[in-house]
Amino acid sequence: MPADAAGLGRARAAAFVAPALLLIAGFLVFPALWTIYLGMTDYRLTGLAAAEPAFTGLDNVRRALDEDQFTHSLGLTLQFVVGSAVLGQALLGFAIAWLLRERHGALRRLVEALVLLAWILPGSVVAFLWIALLDREDGTLNALLGTPGTAWLVEHPMAAIIVFNIWRGTAFSMMLYAAALSSVPPSQLETARLAGASSWQQLRDVVLPRIRGHVLTNLLLISLWTFNDFTPFLLTNGGPGDETEIMPVFVYKTALFNGELGYGAALSVLMLLVNLVIALVYVRLLRAREAAS
């Protein structure tokens, strides 16, 4: 491959890249650095520290690591990610894609449309629907189950938002797996079947090895999305108490409701680091797979 495929020369190539780099610098790098700086101050939304924030170094980070609230919130977030994304969305999405793989026509279109609908509806609309569904007094779920007076969002708040997020986000996994499954050559499945492999054996020995890359990519994306998802706030407000105060809600409440912008910024940076760790783990797994093949 020649070093300068487009024949532009160094100067013109730089001129082409410059606008994009400027945008990235202005809208990504600068805010990120600014957040890190804010995280090292006691900046507040109101009061004296809003007018004259003081530099406090790593105090905010130390406070976060000392405080039960941070570890509590991180624990809830991991529950939320593992429960709703890694187990819920990925497994359910795969199951739907697998069951629908050889079907065409009305049934498949109907199921896909319903699953997709949950994904494309605006968050505020969906939150309203779920609040109505789970309402203590006139909720649809209580009417269906015959459990009047059960306040689902108060009594089982984590379970409620996990189920909510599975319902909300399964569409992406379903579509990605459906595409992945169609890339498995039918001839290989046919051969396995002729050799007497059961459905489970076909899945394990023929399908999964071919789509492992898709699985990892899917898990990477939905884990990061779920980790940063704010929609549960619309359902529970982080409550009751702090029982559903996942990281994005914790940061929001700290920075905006309590007005502790500096501490909130420090929490955002910590959250970013956790995101990076998740991303690194998956990228490692992907690399290891590529190296193996």
Binding site: R44, L45, T46, A50, A51, G259
Partner: peptide, 11 residues
């Protein structure tokens, strides 16, 4: 009750 903190912040 917000007057104090808004005044301190210069708002």
């Amino acid at each position: 009750i917000w007057v104090g903190e808004f005044a301190q912040a210069g708002y």
